[in-house]
């Protein structure tokens, strides 16, 4: 069970308080109707799925309820950092 730092609560809490939210920094296009099918497919489905540094979203669902972003290594499962939603990619 991972130990996750919530940047809003500023505490490390056990994983069962959190819900994983998929890859981070995949912003919904401002106007999806301007995207062609391939671009829309990219937004909906294409994921980087790297071995190594992964930007991902978590929600402190059984805590403050906030979504935030994290950088975690997918080979070691170790968090490099977590930061608030809306902050620039790290």
């Amino acid at each position: 069970m991972l130990l996750i730092h919530c940047p809003y609560c500023d505490e490390k809490r056990p994983e069962i308080e959190f819900a994983y939210g998929g890859e981070a920094h995949i912003a919904r296009p401002h106007d999806p109707s301007t995207l062609n099918d391939e671009e829309w497919e990219g937004h909906l489905f294409i994921r980087s799925n790297p071995r190594g540094r992964h930007h991902e979203r978590w929600r402190h669902i059984h805590g403050c309820g906030r979504f935030f972003n994290a950088v975690r290594d997918t080979v070691t499962d170790k968090f490099e950092t977590t930061y608030k939603a809306g902050e620039p990619r790290r």
């Binding site: 819900a19 939210g21 912003a27 919904r28 979203r57 929600r59 669902i61 309820g65 906030r66 979504f67 939603a85 809306g86």
Partner: peptide
């Protein structure tokens, strides 16, 4: 609710 929170917090803050 989770879906609404997701859009509200991350897409349309």
């Amino acid at each position: 609710l989770n879906m609404m929170e997701d859009y509200l917090q991350t897409e349309w803050p």
